[in-house]
Design a protein around this nucleic acid. Structure first.
Length: 189
DNA sequence: GTATTGATCTTCT
DNA sequence: GAAGATCAATACA
């Protein structure tokens, strides 16, 4: 299974995992693209859902690495995280943007858009384009419908301040692939 | 081009 | 009852 290296990677430290995820290709049911923007969250991060320990929807974040944590944002959108480190650590990486490469037509149909740039350039857009929803919460990442492929060549990561949150915004835990234009707003977007 | 607001669900107070 | 890891539409300049 091509996803084994991914689960291996996710066992490390989340602040090292996040930039290392850039350049990976992620597909859900054959539809997806290259990861170009991610954000790290930990239990000791006031902005993280895992802050304060496991309770409610966040229990998946405290499970073993290599699983998906999907939650609803503002009652409108879904957001997809990859659980990291070890069982009980409450660390995860939020996928914020992809560069669409597979299943473009399917994504355009789901998003109702023509502009490839806007198909996956944001956490909510990404999940809609890939068809990810609450049904995927807690699913293993090394089994269908998920598939991951390592970068062909290393992608330079740029660390920036975080976006869309109100606590610990100054932590440079948002990582963007250098030079891409398929990200939500920021220094390289 | 930037600024503001509505949509609508889960969790916490 | 209020806030939040968002997006898209609207109102301005």
């Amino acid at each position: 299974m091509s996803s084994a290296p991914l689960v291996d990677l996710l066992r490390g430290e989340v602040l090292e995992i996040a930039p290392a995820l850039l350049g990976w290709t992620m597909l859900v049911d054959g539809v997806g693209g290259v990861i170009v923007e991610v954000e790290a969250y930990r239990e000791d991060d006031p902005a993280s859902h895992s802050y304060g320990g496991p309770r409610g929807r966040n229990v998946v974040m405290f499970g073993p690495p290599g699983f998906a944590y999907v939650y609803r944002s503002y009652g409108v959108h879904w957001c997809l995280n990859l659980v990291c480190e070890q069982e009980g650590t409450g660390a995860a990486v939020l996928l914020r943007a992809l560069e669409p490469t597979h299943g473009l037509e399917e994504m355009r149909k789901r998003r109702g858009l023509d502009e490839p740039r806007l198909l996956c350039s944001g956490p909510g857009r990404l999940t809609q384009a890939l068809g990810v929803s609450g049904e995927h919460d807690g699913l293993p990442l090394d089994a269908a419908p998920f598939s991951f492929f390592p970068p062909v060549e290393p992608v330079p990561a740029v660390a920036t301040m975080r976006i869309g949150i109100t606590k610990a915004v100054e932590q440079p835990w948002r990582f963007v692939a250098a030079g891409t234009r398929f990200v939500s707003r920021g220094p390289t977007g």
